[in-house]
Design a protein around this nucleic acid. Structure first.
Lengths: 292, 292
DNA sequence: AGCCAAGCATTCCATTTTGGAATGCTCTCA
DNA sequence: TGAGAGCATTCCAAAATGGAATGCTTGGCT
Protein backbone atom coordinates (compact mmCIF):
# COMPACT_ATOMS: atom_id res chain seq x y z
CA UNK A 1 0.00 0.00 0.00
CA UNK A 2 2.75 2.37 1.01
CA UNK A 3 4.66 0.95 -1.91
CA UNK A 4 1.92 1.78 -4.34
CA UNK A 5 1.83 5.32 -3.06
CA UNK A 6 5.47 5.83 -3.91
CA UNK A 7 5.14 4.10 -7.25
CA UNK A 8 2.27 6.43 -8.00
CA UNK A 9 4.43 9.41 -7.17
CA UNK A 10 7.54 8.31 -8.99
CA UNK A 11 5.76 6.64 -11.87
CA UNK A 12 8.49 4.04 -11.87
CA UNK A 13 9.10 0.80 -10.05
CA UNK A 14 12.82 1.30 -10.09
CA UNK A 15 12.77 4.81 -8.65
CA UNK A 16 10.14 3.81 -6.12
CA UNK A 17 12.41 0.98 -5.06
CA UNK A 18 15.27 3.40 -4.53
CA UNK A 19 13.15 5.74 -2.49
CA UNK A 20 11.85 2.89 -0.37
CA UNK A 21 15.23 1.24 0.04
CA UNK A 22 13.92 -1.87 -1.62
CA UNK A 23 14.71 -3.69 -4.80
CA UNK A 24 12.70 -3.24 -7.91
CA UNK A 25 11.67 -6.86 -7.57
CA UNK A 26 10.04 -6.32 -4.22
CA UNK A 27 8.18 -3.28 -5.47
CA UNK A 28 6.97 -5.09 -8.52
CA UNK A 29 5.48 -7.86 -6.47
CA UNK A 30 3.91 -5.61 -3.89
CA UNK A 31 2.04 -3.74 -6.56
CA UNK A 32 1.11 -6.91 -8.32
CA UNK A 33 -0.27 -8.35 -5.10
CA UNK A 34 -2.33 -5.27 -4.48
CA UNK A 35 -3.74 -5.42 -7.97
CA UNK A 36 -4.55 -9.08 -7.55
CA UNK A 37 -6.34 -8.46 -4.29
CA UNK A 38 -8.42 -5.77 -5.87
CA UNK A 39 -8.92 -7.75 -9.04
CA UNK A 40 -8.28 -4.54 -10.92
CA UNK A 41 -5.27 -3.02 -12.64
CA UNK A 42 -3.91 0.09 -11.01
CA UNK A 43 -1.12 0.83 -13.42
CA UNK A 44 -0.65 0.64 -17.14
CA UNK A 45 2.85 -0.65 -17.76
CA UNK A 46 4.16 1.28 -20.67
CA UNK A 47 7.74 1.01 -21.59
CA UNK A 48 9.84 3.69 -20.06
CA UNK A 49 7.00 5.02 -18.01
CA UNK A 50 3.96 4.00 -16.02
CA UNK A 51 0.48 5.39 -16.22
CA UNK A 52 -2.26 5.22 -13.65
CA UNK A 53 -5.57 3.69 -14.50
CA UNK A 54 -8.60 5.70 -13.33
CA UNK A 55 -8.93 3.30 -10.44
CA UNK A 56 -5.25 3.71 -9.63
CA UNK A 57 -5.48 7.48 -9.73
CA UNK A 58 -8.40 7.53 -7.35
CA UNK A 59 -6.78 5.13 -4.95
CA UNK A 60 -3.52 7.03 -5.05
CA UNK A 61 -5.21 10.26 -4.11
CA UNK A 62 -7.06 8.65 -1.23
CA UNK A 63 -3.99 6.87 0.04
CA UNK A 64 -1.83 9.94 -0.09
CA UNK A 65 -4.28 11.94 1.90
CA UNK A 66 -4.87 9.18 4.41
CA UNK A 67 -1.20 8.45 4.95
CA UNK A 68 -0.39 12.08 5.23
CA UNK A 69 -2.94 12.67 7.93
CA UNK A 70 -1.71 9.65 9.83
CA UNK A 71 1.86 10.77 9.48
CA UNK A 72 1.04 14.21 10.79
CA UNK A 73 -0.80 12.70 13.72
CA UNK A 74 2.06 10.34 14.44
CA UNK A 75 4.52 13.17 14.35
CA UNK A 76 2.51 15.34 16.62
CA UNK A 77 2.61 12.50 19.12
CA UNK A 78 6.27 11.66 18.78
CA UNK A 79 7.22 15.24 19.33
CA UNK A 80 4.31 16.62 21.13
CA UNK A 81 6.56 18.86 23.15
CA UNK A 82 7.65 20.26 19.82
CA UNK A 83 4.34 21.11 18.28
CA UNK A 84 5.81 24.37 17.21
CA UNK A 85 8.92 23.13 15.63
CA UNK A 86 9.57 23.97 12.03
CA UNK A 87 11.72 21.38 10.32
CA UNK A 88 13.56 22.66 7.30
CA UNK A 89 16.37 21.58 5.08
CA UNK A 90 18.59 24.15 3.44
CA UNK A 91 21.54 23.75 1.08
CA UNK A 92 24.72 23.86 3.15
CA UNK A 93 26.18 27.03 1.75
CA UNK A 94 22.91 28.89 1.89
CA UNK A 95 22.49 27.75 5.46
CA UNK A 96 25.83 28.96 6.61
CA UNK A 97 26.21 32.11 4.53
CA UNK A 98 22.69 33.43 4.37
CA UNK A 99 20.38 31.83 6.89
CA UNK A 100 22.61 31.48 9.92
CA UNK A 101 23.51 35.18 10.08
CA UNK A 102 19.79 35.96 9.92
CA UNK A 103 18.71 33.44 12.51
CA UNK A 104 18.55 36.02 15.29
CA UNK A 105 16.19 38.10 13.18
CA UNK A 106 14.12 35.02 12.42
CA UNK A 107 13.79 34.19 16.10
CA UNK A 108 12.73 37.73 16.70
CA UNK A 109 10.12 37.61 13.96
CA UNK A 110 8.82 34.15 14.96
CA UNK A 111 9.63 33.88 18.64
CA UNK A 112 7.28 30.96 19.26
CA UNK A 113 8.63 28.75 16.49
CA UNK A 114 11.52 26.42 17.13
CA UNK A 115 13.69 25.64 14.16
CA UNK A 116 15.25 22.35 13.18
CA UNK A 117 17.77 23.01 10.48
CA UNK A 118 19.15 20.28 8.26
CA UNK A 119 21.71 20.77 5.50
CA UNK A 120 21.46 17.61 3.45
CA UNK A 121 22.36 18.09 -0.17
CA UNK A 122 19.29 16.09 -1.20
CA UNK A 123 16.35 16.67 1.09
CA UNK A 124 13.47 14.27 1.60
CA UNK A 125 10.61 16.72 1.35
CA UNK A 126 8.77 14.80 -1.32
CA UNK A 127 9.45 11.38 0.11
CA UNK A 128 8.85 11.57 3.83
CA UNK A 129 6.78 13.69 6.11
CA UNK A 130 9.57 14.69 8.44
CA UNK A 131 10.35 18.01 6.88
CA UNK A 132 7.90 20.88 6.85
CA UNK A 133 9.61 22.68 4.03
CA UNK A 134 12.97 23.19 2.37
CA UNK A 135 15.08 25.61 0.46
CA UNK A 136 16.44 24.20 -2.75
CA UNK A 137 18.75 25.34 -5.46
CA UNK A 138 17.62 24.64 -8.99
CA UNK A 139 15.10 25.61 -11.63
CA UNK A 140 12.01 25.46 -9.45
CA UNK A 141 10.64 22.39 -11.22
CA UNK A 142 10.02 19.64 -8.70
CA UNK A 143 7.14 17.27 -9.23
CA UNK A 144 4.44 17.28 -6.56
CA UNK A 145 5.99 20.22 -4.73
CA UNK A 146 5.25 23.92 -4.61
CA UNK A 147 8.14 26.35 -5.02
CA UNK A 148 8.43 30.12 -4.60
CA UNK A 149 11.54 31.83 -5.86
CA UNK A 150 13.75 33.52 -3.31
CA UNK A 151 16.75 34.75 -5.21
CA UNK A 152 18.66 34.06 -8.38
CA UNK A 153 22.38 33.62 -7.96
CA UNK A 154 24.60 36.48 -9.08
CA UNK A 155 28.18 35.48 -9.57
CA UNK A 156 31.12 37.67 -8.70
CA UNK A 157 34.81 36.89 -8.46
CA UNK A 158 36.38 37.32 -5.05
CA UNK A 159 39.62 36.69 -3.22
CA UNK A 160 41.38 37.66 -0.02
CA UNK A 161 42.77 41.20 -0.03
CA UNK A 162 46.20 39.85 0.94
CA UNK A 163 46.50 38.25 -2.50
CA UNK A 164 46.31 41.59 -4.19
CA UNK A 165 49.11 43.25 -2.29
CA UNK A 166 51.27 45.15 -4.69
CA UNK A 167 49.43 43.83 -7.72
CA UNK A 168 47.35 45.58 -10.28
CA UNK A 169 44.55 43.45 -11.62
CA UNK A 170 43.22 44.67 -14.91
CA UNK A 171 42.74 41.88 -17.35
CA UNK A 172 42.67 38.17 -18.10
CA UNK A 173 46.36 37.73 -17.83
CA UNK A 174 46.43 39.16 -14.32
CA UNK A 175 43.74 36.74 -13.33
CA UNK A 176 45.64 33.85 -14.75
CA UNK A 177 48.31 34.27 -12.09
CA UNK A 178 45.97 33.21 -9.31
CA UNK A 179 44.92 29.76 -8.24
CA UNK A 180 41.37 29.05 -9.29
CA UNK A 181 38.96 27.62 -6.75
CA UNK A 182 36.20 25.45 -8.24
CA UNK A 183 33.01 23.91 -6.97
CA UNK A 184 32.07 20.39 -7.99
CA UNK A 185 28.62 19.40 -9.17
CA UNK A 186 29.56 15.76 -8.82
CA UNK A 187 32.84 14.04 -7.95
CA UNK A 188 34.07 14.32 -11.51
CA UNK A 189 32.27 17.36 -12.82
CA UNK A 190 32.62 21.03 -11.98
CA UNK A 191 29.91 23.62 -11.99
CA UNK A 192 30.53 25.82 -14.98
CA UNK A 193 30.41 29.06 -13.03
CA UNK A 194 33.92 30.10 -13.92
CA UNK A 195 33.23 29.48 -17.58
CA UNK A 196 30.06 31.58 -17.48
CA UNK A 197 31.68 34.38 -15.62
CA UNK A 198 34.68 34.53 -17.93
CA UNK A 199 32.41 34.55 -20.97
CA UNK A 200 30.39 37.40 -19.50
CA UNK A 201 33.53 39.32 -18.65
CA UNK A 202 34.74 38.81 -22.19
CA UNK A 203 37.95 37.13 -21.04
CA UNK A 204 39.14 34.69 -23.62
CA UNK A 205 41.90 32.17 -23.31
CA UNK A 206 41.97 31.91 -19.57
CA UNK A 207 43.06 28.43 -18.61
CA UNK A 208 40.93 27.26 -15.71
CA UNK A 209 41.88 23.64 -15.84
CA UNK A 210 44.11 23.74 -12.79
CA UNK A 211 43.17 24.91 -9.33
CA UNK A 212 41.54 23.48 -6.25
CA UNK A 213 38.18 21.75 -6.25
CA UNK A 214 35.65 21.61 -3.46
CA UNK A 215 32.35 19.82 -3.19
CA UNK A 216 30.73 22.79 -1.48
CA UNK A 217 30.77 26.44 -2.41
CA UNK A 218 31.12 27.11 1.26
CA UNK A 219 34.53 25.48 1.35
CA UNK A 220 35.62 27.37 -1.73
CA UNK A 221 34.68 30.60 0.00
CA UNK A 222 36.55 29.60 3.13
CA UNK A 223 39.56 28.81 0.96
CA UNK A 224 39.32 32.20 -0.68
CA UNK A 225 39.19 33.88 2.74
CA UNK A 226 42.31 31.97 3.65
CA UNK A 227 44.06 33.43 0.63
CA UNK A 228 44.25 30.17 -1.28
CA UNK A 229 42.98 31.61 -4.53
CA UNK A 230 40.15 33.29 -6.39
CA UNK A 231 36.66 31.90 -6.66
CA UNK A 232 33.37 32.69 -8.26
CA UNK A 233 30.64 32.99 -5.67
CA UNK A 234 27.08 34.11 -5.39
CA UNK A 235 27.08 37.68 -4.17
CA UNK A 236 24.57 36.92 -1.44
CA UNK A 237 26.82 34.26 -0.02
CA UNK A 238 29.79 36.57 0.40
CA UNK A 239 28.04 39.79 1.23
CA UNK A 240 29.29 39.67 4.77
CA UNK A 241 32.90 38.97 3.87
CA UNK A 242 32.88 41.81 1.36
CA UNK A 243 31.53 44.19 3.95
CA UNK A 244 34.10 43.29 6.58
CA UNK A 245 36.90 43.28 4.06
CA UNK A 246 37.70 39.60 4.46
CA UNK A 247 37.16 39.29 0.75
CA UNK A 248 37.37 41.76 -2.06
CA UNK A 249 35.68 41.66 -5.42
CA UNK A 250 37.78 41.52 -8.58
CA UNK A 251 36.43 43.31 -11.62
CA UNK A 252 33.03 44.87 -11.76
CA UNK A 253 31.44 41.94 -13.51
CA UNK A 254 28.37 40.28 -12.08
CA UNK A 255 26.74 37.37 -13.89
CA UNK A 256 23.22 36.21 -13.33
CA UNK A 257 23.22 32.43 -13.02
CA UNK A 258 20.47 30.33 -14.52
CA UNK A 259 19.51 28.61 -11.30
CA UNK A 260 17.95 30.05 -8.18
CA UNK A 261 17.16 29.42 -4.55
CA UNK A 262 13.57 28.38 -3.98
CA UNK A 263 11.36 27.94 -1.00
CA UNK A 264 9.76 24.53 -1.44
CA UNK A 265 6.77 22.98 0.32
CA UNK A 266 4.40 20.12 -0.08
CA UNK A 267 1.06 21.24 -1.45
CA UNK A 268 -0.63 20.15 1.77
CA UNK A 269 1.40 22.68 3.71
CA UNK A 270 -0.65 25.66 2.56
CA UNK A 271 -2.59 25.64 5.78
CA UNK A 272 0.34 25.22 8.11
CA UNK A 273 0.76 28.36 10.16
CA UNK A 274 4.47 27.87 10.85
CA UNK A 275 5.37 27.22 7.26
CA UNK A 276 3.38 30.18 6.11
CA UNK A 277 4.97 32.49 8.62
CA UNK A 278 8.40 31.29 7.61
CA UNK A 279 7.71 31.82 3.93
CA UNK A 280 6.49 35.32 4.61
CA UNK A 281 9.58 36.10 6.63
CA UNK A 282 11.89 34.68 3.97
CA UNK A 283 10.30 36.67 1.20
CA UNK A 284 10.52 39.85 3.26
CA UNK A 285 14.20 39.19 3.97
CA UNK A 286 15.16 38.63 0.38
CA UNK A 287 13.19 41.71 -0.63
CA UNK A 288 15.15 43.71 1.94
CA UNK A 289 18.37 42.25 0.55
CA UNK A 290 17.58 43.45 -2.91
CA UNK A 291 17.06 46.99 -1.67
CA UNK A 292 20.29 46.98 0.29
CA UNK B 1 -1.84 0.11 13.30
CA UNK B 2 -5.01 -1.63 12.21
CA UNK B 3 -4.74 -3.53 15.45
CA UNK B 4 -4.65 -0.38 17.49
CA UNK B 5 -7.72 0.88 15.72
CA UNK B 6 -9.72 -2.14 16.80
CA UNK B 7 -8.33 -2.06 20.31
CA UNK B 8 -9.38 1.57 20.49
CA UNK B 9 -12.88 0.62 19.44
CA UNK B 10 -13.30 -2.39 21.64
CA UNK B 11 -11.35 -1.04 24.58
CA UNK B 12 -10.04 -4.53 25.17
CA UNK B 13 -7.14 -6.58 23.88
CA UNK B 14 -9.09 -9.76 24.15
CA UNK B 15 -12.12 -8.55 22.25
CA UNK B 16 -9.93 -6.88 19.67
CA UNK B 17 -8.14 -10.17 19.21
CA UNK B 18 -11.43 -11.92 18.58
CA UNK B 19 -12.55 -9.37 16.07
CA UNK B 20 -9.23 -9.56 14.26
CA UNK B 21 -9.01 -13.32 14.38
CA UNK B 22 -5.80 -13.09 16.34
CA UNK B 23 -4.75 -14.10 19.78
CA UNK B 24 -4.65 -11.67 22.65
CA UNK B 25 -0.92 -12.16 22.72
CA UNK B 26 -0.44 -10.92 19.20
CA UNK B 27 -2.60 -7.90 19.84
CA UNK B 28 -0.77 -7.06 23.00
CA UNK B 29 2.56 -7.02 21.26
CA UNK B 30 1.39 -5.10 18.24
CA UNK B 31 0.13 -2.33 20.44
CA UNK B 32 3.23 -2.42 22.55
CA UNK B 33 5.40 -2.15 19.45
CA UNK B 34 3.46 0.82 18.24
CA UNK B 35 3.83 2.52 21.58
CA UNK B 36 7.53 1.80 21.60
CA UNK B 37 7.99 3.23 18.15
CA UNK B 38 6.20 6.38 19.15
CA UNK B 39 7.91 6.50 22.51
CA UNK B 40 4.55 7.41 23.98
CA UNK B 41 1.81 5.46 25.70
CA UNK B 42 -1.41 5.18 23.79
CA UNK B 43 -3.42 3.23 26.32
CA UNK B 44 -3.78 3.24 30.04
CA UNK B 45 -4.03 -0.37 31.13
CA UNK B 46 -6.60 -0.44 33.86
CA UNK B 47 -7.80 -3.70 35.09
CA UNK B 48 -10.90 -4.86 33.37
CA UNK B 49 -10.87 -1.99 30.96
CA UNK B 50 -8.56 0.16 28.88
CA UNK B 51 -8.48 3.90 28.59
CA UNK B 52 -7.01 5.98 25.82
CA UNK B 53 -4.37 8.55 26.59
CA UNK B 54 -4.90 11.92 24.90
CA UNK B 55 -2.30 10.91 22.35
CA UNK B 56 -4.05 7.61 21.81
CA UNK B 57 -7.40 9.28 21.36
CA UNK B 58 -6.06 11.64 18.76
CA UNK B 59 -4.29 8.92 16.88
CA UNK B 60 -7.34 6.69 16.98
CA UNK B 61 -9.52 9.36 15.46
CA UNK B 62 -7.04 10.03 12.69
CA UNK B 63 -6.52 6.38 11.96
CA UNK B 64 -10.20 5.60 11.85
CA UNK B 65 -10.87 8.34 9.38
CA UNK B 66 -7.87 7.46 7.25
CA UNK B 67 -8.64 3.76 7.14
CA UNK B 68 -12.24 4.40 6.44
CA UNK B 69 -11.50 6.57 3.46
CA UNK B 70 -9.07 4.00 2.14
CA UNK B 71 -11.58 1.25 2.67
CA UNK B 72 -14.24 3.14 0.79
CA UNK B 73 -11.87 3.81 -2.04
CA UNK B 74 -10.82 0.19 -2.13
CA UNK B 75 -14.40 -0.93 -2.19
CA UNK B 76 -15.35 1.42 -4.94
CA UNK B 77 -12.59 -0.15 -7.00
CA UNK B 78 -13.35 -3.75 -6.18
CA UNK B 79 -16.94 -3.28 -7.11
CA UNK B 80 -16.76 -0.40 -9.43
CA UNK B 81 -19.59 -1.84 -11.46
CA UNK B 82 -21.58 -1.58 -8.25
CA UNK B 83 -20.93 2.02 -7.34
CA UNK B 84 -24.59 2.35 -6.67
CA UNK B 85 -25.10 -0.63 -4.51
CA UNK B 86 -26.44 -0.13 -1.04
CA UNK B 87 -25.34 -2.86 1.33
CA UNK B 88 -27.62 -3.29 4.31
CA UNK B 89 -28.20 -5.80 7.03
CA UNK B 90 -31.66 -6.22 8.47
CA UNK B 91 -32.97 -8.50 11.22
CA UNK B 92 -34.41 -11.60 9.57
CA UNK B 93 -38.00 -11.13 10.58
CA UNK B 94 -38.03 -7.48 9.72
CA UNK B 95 -36.48 -8.33 6.37
CA UNK B 96 -39.06 -10.90 5.47
CA UNK B 97 -42.17 -9.39 7.00
CA UNK B 98 -41.65 -5.70 6.49
CA UNK B 99 -38.92 -4.90 4.03
CA UNK B 100 -39.41 -7.61 1.40
CA UNK B 101 -43.07 -6.72 0.73
CA UNK B 102 -41.97 -3.12 0.27
CA UNK B 103 -39.00 -3.83 -1.98
CA UNK B 104 -40.96 -3.07 -5.15
CA UNK B 105 -41.84 0.34 -3.72
CA UNK B 106 -38.23 0.89 -2.74
CA UNK B 107 -37.01 0.08 -6.24
CA UNK B 108 -39.56 2.49 -7.56
CA UNK B 109 -38.43 5.22 -5.21
CA UNK B 110 -34.71 4.60 -5.74
CA UNK B 111 -34.54 3.05 -9.18
CA UNK B 112 -30.82 3.66 -9.59
CA UNK B 113 -29.78 2.02 -6.33
CA UNK B 114 -29.06 -1.69 -6.21
CA UNK B 115 -29.68 -3.37 -2.89
CA UNK B 116 -27.62 -6.03 -1.16
CA UNK B 117 -29.64 -7.40 1.68
CA UNK B 118 -28.13 -9.42 4.49
CA UNK B 119 -30.03 -10.85 7.43
CA UNK B 120 -27.32 -11.70 9.96
CA UNK B 121 -28.47 -11.55 13.53
CA UNK B 122 -25.33 -9.61 14.47
CA UNK B 123 -24.22 -7.25 11.75
CA UNK B 124 -20.70 -5.94 11.29
CA UNK B 125 -21.52 -2.30 10.75
CA UNK B 126 -19.18 -1.08 13.46
CA UNK B 127 -16.38 -3.49 12.70
CA UNK B 128 -15.95 -3.58 8.96
CA UNK B 129 -16.60 -1.25 6.11
CA UNK B 130 -18.62 -3.68 4.03
CA UNK B 131 -22.04 -2.54 5.10
CA UNK B 132 -23.38 0.89 4.33
CA UNK B 133 -26.04 0.78 7.00
CA UNK B 134 -28.23 -1.58 8.96
CA UNK B 135 -31.53 -1.93 10.67
CA UNK B 136 -31.26 -3.15 14.24
CA UNK B 137 -33.61 -4.09 16.98
CA UNK B 138 -32.78 -2.74 20.41
CA UNK B 139 -32.66 0.39 22.49
CA UNK B 140 -30.82 2.58 20.01
CA UNK B 141 -27.65 2.68 22.08
CA UNK B 142 -24.74 1.48 20.02
CA UNK B 143 -21.33 2.99 20.56
CA UNK B 144 -19.77 4.81 17.61
CA UNK B 145 -22.92 4.47 15.52
CA UNK B 146 -25.80 6.79 14.69
CA UNK B 147 -29.33 5.47 15.03
CA UNK B 148 -32.72 6.88 14.01
CA UNK B 149 -35.82 5.22 15.33
CA UNK B 150 -38.12 3.59 12.81
CA UNK B 151 -40.82 1.92 14.82
CA UNK B 152 -41.44 0.57 18.27
CA UNK B 153 -42.82 -2.91 18.41
CA UNK B 154 -46.50 -3.29 19.25
CA UNK B 155 -47.40 -6.74 20.37
CA UNK B 156 -50.64 -8.44 19.52
CA UNK B 157 -51.71 -12.03 19.91
CA UNK B 158 -52.53 -13.88 16.72
CA UNK B 159 -53.36 -17.33 15.45
CA UNK B 160 -54.76 -19.04 12.38
CA UNK B 161 -58.51 -18.62 11.96
CA UNK B 162 -58.90 -22.40 11.72
CA UNK B 163 -57.97 -22.69 15.39
CA UNK B 164 -60.97 -20.65 16.40
CA UNK B 165 -63.60 -22.69 14.61
CA UNK B 166 -66.53 -23.18 16.86
CA UNK B 167 -64.74 -21.58 19.83
CA UNK B 168 -65.54 -18.49 21.74
CA UNK B 169 -62.46 -16.79 23.10
CA UNK B 170 -63.20 -14.42 25.91
CA UNK B 171 -60.71 -14.81 28.72
CA UNK B 172 -57.53 -16.28 30.07
CA UNK B 173 -58.88 -19.76 30.39
CA UNK B 174 -59.83 -19.84 26.73
CA UNK B 175 -56.32 -18.82 25.86
CA UNK B 176 -54.87 -21.53 28.01
CA UNK B 177 -56.27 -24.17 25.69
CA UNK B 178 -53.97 -23.20 22.85
CA UNK B 179 -50.37 -24.10 22.28
CA UNK B 180 -48.12 -21.12 22.98
CA UNK B 181 -45.47 -20.18 20.44
CA UNK B 182 -42.41 -18.52 21.91
CA UNK B 183 -39.38 -16.69 20.54
CA UNK B 184 -35.97 -17.28 22.03
CA UNK B 185 -33.56 -14.50 22.88
CA UNK B 186 -30.80 -17.06 23.32
CA UNK B 187 -30.78 -20.86 23.22
CA UNK B 188 -31.95 -21.10 26.83
CA UNK B 189 -33.87 -17.89 27.30
CA UNK B 190 -37.16 -16.70 25.88
CA UNK B 191 -38.11 -13.15 25.08
CA UNK B 192 -40.63 -12.08 27.69
CA UNK B 193 -43.17 -10.87 25.18
CA UNK B 194 -45.87 -13.26 26.31
CA UNK B 195 -45.37 -12.23 29.91
CA UNK B 196 -45.65 -8.55 29.02
CA UNK B 197 -48.70 -9.04 26.92
CA UNK B 198 -50.50 -11.11 29.55
CA UNK B 199 -49.70 -8.52 32.19
CA UNK B 200 -51.07 -5.75 30.01
CA UNK B 201 -54.16 -7.75 29.24
CA UNK B 202 -54.66 -8.32 32.93
CA UNK B 203 -54.66 -12.08 32.54
CA UNK B 204 -53.33 -13.71 35.67
CA UNK B 205 -52.45 -17.32 36.15
CA UNK B 206 -51.90 -18.24 32.55
CA UNK B 207 -49.31 -20.97 32.40
CA UNK B 208 -46.97 -20.26 29.50
CA UNK B 209 -44.26 -22.72 30.40
CA UNK B 210 -45.14 -25.20 27.68
CA UNK B 211 -45.38 -24.59 23.98
CA UNK B 212 -43.08 -24.41 21.03
CA UNK B 213 -39.93 -22.30 20.90
CA UNK B 214 -38.33 -20.74 17.86
CA UNK B 215 -35.18 -18.76 17.48
CA UNK B 216 -36.83 -16.36 15.08
CA UNK B 217 -40.10 -14.53 15.35
CA UNK B 218 -40.53 -15.26 11.68
CA UNK B 219 -40.73 -18.98 12.35
CA UNK B 220 -43.19 -18.45 15.14
CA UNK B 221 -45.40 -16.51 12.78
CA UNK B 222 -45.13 -19.19 10.13
CA UNK B 223 -46.09 -21.71 12.78
CA UNK B 224 -49.06 -19.63 13.75
CA UNK B 225 -50.16 -19.42 10.12
CA UNK B 226 -49.93 -23.19 9.94
CA UNK B 227 -52.30 -23.43 12.86
CA UNK B 228 -49.74 -24.70 15.35
CA UNK B 229 -50.68 -22.32 18.08
CA UNK B 230 -50.95 -18.72 19.23
CA UNK B 231 -48.10 -16.28 19.28
CA UNK B 232 -47.33 -12.75 20.26
CA UNK B 233 -46.05 -10.78 17.35
CA UNK B 234 -45.28 -7.25 16.40
CA UNK B 235 -48.30 -5.86 14.58
CA UNK B 236 -46.13 -4.57 11.74
CA UNK B 237 -44.80 -8.04 11.13
CA UNK B 238 -48.20 -9.63 10.67
CA UNK B 239 -50.08 -6.78 9.07
CA UNK B 240 -50.25 -8.61 5.81
CA UNK B 241 -51.47 -11.87 7.27
CA UNK B 242 -54.15 -10.08 9.21
CA UNK B 243 -55.35 -8.31 6.09
CA UNK B 244 -55.55 -11.48 4.02
CA UNK B 245 -57.11 -13.42 6.84
CA UNK B 246 -54.27 -15.89 7.19
CA UNK B 247 -54.08 -14.81 10.81
CA UNK B 248 -56.60 -13.29 13.14
CA UNK B 249 -56.03 -11.20 16.21
CA UNK B 250 -57.21 -12.46 19.59
CA UNK B 251 -58.42 -9.87 22.07
CA UNK B 252 -58.15 -6.18 21.45
CA UNK B 253 -54.99 -5.79 23.49
CA UNK B 254 -51.93 -4.17 21.98
CA UNK B 255 -48.75 -3.77 24.05
CA UNK B 256 -45.99 -1.36 23.28
CA UNK B 257 -42.66 -3.15 23.64
CA UNK B 258 -39.65 -1.48 25.13
CA UNK B 259 -37.38 -2.10 22.19
CA UNK B 260 -37.57 -0.69 18.71
CA UNK B 261 -36.31 -1.01 15.18
CA UNK B 262 -33.62 1.52 14.35
CA UNK B 263 -31.91 2.65 11.24
CA UNK B 264 -28.21 2.56 12.04
CA UNK B 265 -25.28 4.10 10.22
CA UNK B 266 -21.66 4.93 10.79
CA UNK B 267 -21.20 8.61 11.52
CA UNK B 268 -19.14 8.99 8.34
CA UNK B 269 -22.14 7.98 6.27
CA UNK B 270 -23.91 11.32 6.64
CA UNK B 271 -22.69 12.42 3.27
CA UNK B 272 -23.49 9.22 1.41
CA UNK B 273 -26.21 9.90 -1.12
CA UNK B 274 -27.52 6.32 -1.22
CA UNK B 275 -27.69 5.93 2.52
CA UNK B 276 -29.44 9.22 2.89
CA UNK B 277 -31.99 8.41 0.24
CA UNK B 278 -32.66 5.08 1.88
CA UNK B 279 -33.11 6.64 5.28
CA UNK B 280 -35.55 9.16 3.86
CA UNK B 281 -37.52 6.44 2.16
CA UNK B 282 -37.61 4.29 5.30
CA UNK B 283 -38.86 7.13 7.45
CA UNK B 284 -41.54 7.99 4.92
CA UNK B 285 -42.65 4.36 4.80
CA UNK B 286 -42.98 3.96 8.53
CA UNK B 287 -44.80 7.28 8.72
CA UNK B 288 -47.24 5.99 6.10
CA UNK B 289 -47.63 2.79 8.13
CA UNK B 290 -48.61 4.71 11.19
CA UNK B 291 -51.35 6.51 9.29
CA UNK B 292 -52.73 3.31 7.79
C1' DA C 1 15.18 -4.32 -40.01
C1' DG C 2 17.54 -5.53 -36.20
C1' DC C 3 20.07 -4.57 -32.09
C1' DC C 4 20.47 -2.40 -27.64
C1' DA C 5 19.14 -0.73 -23.44
C1' DA C 6 15.69 0.48 -20.16
C1' DG C 7 12.59 -1.22 -17.18
C1' DC C 8 9.13 -4.46 -15.46
C1' DA C 9 8.28 -9.65 -14.33
C1' DT C 10 9.68 -13.92 -12.26
C1' DT C 11 11.94 -17.38 -9.59
C1' DC C 12 14.23 -19.06 -5.70
C1' DC C 13 15.98 -18.68 -1.42
C1' DA C 14 17.21 -15.96 2.97
C1' DT C 15 15.53 -12.86 6.30
C1' DT C 16 12.30 -10.62 8.98
C1' DT C 17 7.99 -10.11 10.76
C1' DT C 18 4.01 -11.82 12.63
C1' DG C 19 1.22 -15.10 15.12
C1' DG C 20 -0.01 -18.91 18.44
C1' DA C 21 0.13 -21.58 22.88
C1' DA C 22 1.38 -21.69 27.27
C1' DT C 23 2.35 -19.37 31.17
C1' DG C 24 3.06 -15.50 34.32
C1' DC C 25 1.64 -11.45 36.59
C1' DT C 26 -1.46 -8.10 38.79
C1' DC C 27 -5.49 -5.98 40.15
C1' DT C 28 -10.50 -6.22 41.39
C1' DC C 29 -14.17 -8.10 43.69
C1' DA C 30 -16.53 -11.03 46.65
C1' DT D 1 -7.65 -13.74 51.01
C1' DG D 2 -8.60 -16.42 47.14
C1' DA D 3 -10.52 -16.65 42.49
C1' DG D 4 -10.84 -14.96 38.11
C1' DA D 5 -10.45 -11.59 34.50
C1' DG D 6 -7.37 -9.61 31.54
C1' DC D 7 -2.87 -7.93 29.99
C1' DA D 8 2.32 -9.24 29.53
C1' DT D 9 5.92 -12.40 28.24
C1' DT D 10 8.44 -16.15 26.30
C1' DC D 11 9.45 -19.38 22.92
C1' DC D 12 8.79 -21.42 18.81
C1' DA D 13 6.40 -21.98 14.22
C1' DA D 14 4.53 -19.97 10.12
C1' DA D 15 3.99 -16.54 6.86
C1' DA D 16 5.16 -12.45 4.63
C1' DT D 17 8.60 -9.81 2.78
C1' DG D 18 12.91 -8.77 0.57
C1' DG D 19 17.17 -9.59 -2.33
C1' DA D 20 19.91 -11.35 -6.36
C1' DA D 21 19.88 -13.16 -10.54
C1' DT D 22 17.66 -13.71 -14.61
C1' DG D 23 14.11 -13.40 -18.16
C1' DC D 24 11.05 -10.84 -21.04
C1' DT D 25 9.10 -7.01 -23.68
C1' DT D 26 9.33 -2.94 -26.27
C1' DG D 27 10.66 1.60 -27.90
C1' DG D 28 14.40 4.02 -29.82
C1' DC D 29 18.32 4.24 -32.66
C1' DT D 30 21.37 3.22 -36.30
Amino acid sequence: MKVFEVVGQTRSFTRAAERLNLTQSAVSRQVRNLEDELGEDLLIRRHHHLELTPAGAELLATIQEAFHSIEVSLRSITEKSNQNRLRINVPPTFAKRWLLPRLPRLREALPDVDISLGTEAADTLAERGLLDCAIRFGDGEWPMLDASILMTERHVVVCAPSLLEGLKIEGPSDLQRFTFLHVLASPDRRYLTWRHWLDAAGFQDVDTRGGLEFDLLDLAIEAACAGLGVTVADRSMVRNQLQTGQLVQLFDVEVEGHESYWFVTRPQAVNDRKVDAFRTWLLAEVAADRVA
